[in-house]
Design a protein around this nucleic acid. Structure first.
Lengths: 329, 329
DNA sequence: CTGTTAGCGCGTTCAG
DNA sequence: CTGAACGCGCTAACAG
């Protein structure tokens, strides 16, 4: 392997000079810069990121924490969108994303977890789907030993940012449009998880709307589970005009249940996943661009790594209707 | 950060001794081993993988190459299964998986690609969905600069293994069962890609069966695209008894098309993805366990890294029928 | 603006 | 069986 030393010799300069042009430091004359770059090209030199990391203590490695297989379904495409968005953006920024699933770390206590990430030389954590019950993770975040970007969970610190859409407004907006269009009065609302961050916000938006429009709101907790949404629908849908769900997966469960029951009720979802196109009917929903959400999270991580303080980032959402033709490829 | 030096001091031994017990070397007395392990536990020491990698030149890092968004659909869950299987197994083996998408490297030539992976200190590549047209990747593999495990593509070398199910037999088996059960004679077969590795094998299995049962086989290329399968179905299904597809996504496209055409024909798929459950009808298919496939690929990579020669690994498949109740959670 | 030097944390001889 | 010493490839002060 050709190293920085070879380059230095070949270019007739000192090692540190090569290092400087590599890292785009100032204080290097155009001339020597050219010599060095020429040598690099000739030798086909590739900087060894491992050595750089060891020396500089800056690895640029961030872990993407995903909660696949917890309250998430088999066909859930959201984690994949997160991964795609994060990895692609990270590559552009010269960062390194390693994917970690909650199941891999759920048995650990704070110290184990800290050690685990430190041993991997991970500097930052992007956490997707943190819930209030994740005591260990909360402690880890509070310890401020890692830069953290929270997706869809609150929390700001010197090393902690969070990023999300305005869930209250989004639920309010989509439900309003949906209800007016369908002239509904008696609503079955299938919410997410009790004490869930986004769940509570969406619920709030729903309540706000119910009050404003004088709706009869009947609420049940679906835990973001398609199956639970199905059962709830079977039990309560008959006596309502329409069903609004806090997630698309639940909306799909509800829709399938209605088909099996052989009755029709309009259903409204939340997320904008393409699986919605397979559910049978065209459905209202809120579109979140998860790929972009993840990309922005990586950006935010880069900002934190540059030493800036944590902040809250709110991304826009849009209201859409998904049908099969939109998603088939 | 607590380092090997601290452990040595704490245990009253030399640094190298600690290193030896860490790496399970012989020639260390039980007594000192105990002392060292005690010190490690007390200090909560975790070896720094970066430093270890730099020193030993062995990083244990492998790239998982995925072709998401090429001939793959939005809702495709297969890449996610690969990621899950590979990452979890890698963690057990103390290896490090970084996910790379074809789109990130498709513009590179061989040297660029080599440098890219080398700069990341990647020792091995697990390649999912290699096609004959990927000239650059083929060159890279032939260069033998990296250990390679090919999933669903042929190729064996001193540093190259491949792993897959028996596509010929799998297509033969599932089609046979499906055809006999449905008493079909005139078959519309929607194959994968022209010149695709698995496509050709599956096609071969199909032809073999057609000959054996004296079927009338009408074949069209669907490029693993749900949309193309839909169009093909619209055009040719009416005059056949049944439709067999080389992938589940195409089977779903076919089934949706049939529903829109308001005619019934049995449809058979291949892969066993859970999205099949959302297609409307219960469907025959071949079940591949992609998670396990990826895990086995990681195992195989570990074997290569230990210096063993490349080999071919054939995994079993099973025939199943998927319906909505099987996949909802 | 350029070169010298001292580590980063660990693996690995090679004397003792 | 143990420990001192060197080096992996690179960065970061510090001299010059």
């Amino acid at each position: 392997m050709v190293s920085i030393k070879d380059v230095a010799k070949h270019a007739g300069v000192a090692i540190s000079t090569v290092s400087k042009v590599l890292n785009h430091y100032p204080n290097v004359s155009e001339e020597t810069k050219k010599k060095v770059n020429a040598a690099i090209a000739e030798l086909g030199f590739v900087p060894n990121s491992i050595a750089a990391a060891l020396s500089s203590k800056q690895t640029g490695r961030v872990a993407l924490l995903l909660d696949v297989n917890r309250h998430v379904q088999t066909v859930d495409e959201i984690p994949m969108q997160y991964i795609l968005g994060a990895i692609n953006r990270a590559k552009e920024l010269g960062m390194d994303v390693i994917t970690v699933f909650f199941t891999m770390i759920q048995e650990m206590d704070v110290e184990e977890m800290t050690r685990y990430f430190q041993s991997q030389s991970i500097e930052g954590l992007i956490v997707c789907g943190l819930s209030k019950q994740d005591a260990v993770l909360h402690k880890l975040i509070k310890s401020e030993k890692f830069k953290v970007v929270l997706i869809d969970a609150p929390g700001i610190g010197i090393h902690t940012s969070n990023i999300h859409v305005d869930n209250v407004k989004a639920q309010y907006d989509v439900a309003k449009k949906f209800i007016i269009e369908n002239k509904a009065k008696k609503i079955l609302y299938i919410s997410g998880k009790k004490n869930g961050y986004v769940s509570e916000e969406r619920m709030q938006g729903m309540k706000q709307l119910a009050e404003e429009l004088g709706l009869t709101l009947f609420t049940r907790t679906g835990n973001f589970s398609e199956l639970e949404a199905r059962k709830i629908t079977m039990q309560y849908a008959k006596r309502r005009d329409a069903i609004i769900c806090a997630s698309d997966m639940m909306a799909i469960g509800a829709m399938k249940a209605l088909i099996d029951m052989d009755i029709y009720r309009p259903v409204c979802g939340f997320d904008g996943i393409s699986l919605m196109g397979y559910a049978g009917k065209q459905m209202h929903t809120v579109r979140q661009d998860f790929k972009q959400l993840a990309a922005r999270a990586v950006d935010e991580m880069a900002r934190l790594m540059e030493g800036h303080e944590g902040q809250e980032v709110v991304l826009p959402h849009q209201l859409i209707r998904i049908k099969y033709e939109d998603v088939i490829t």
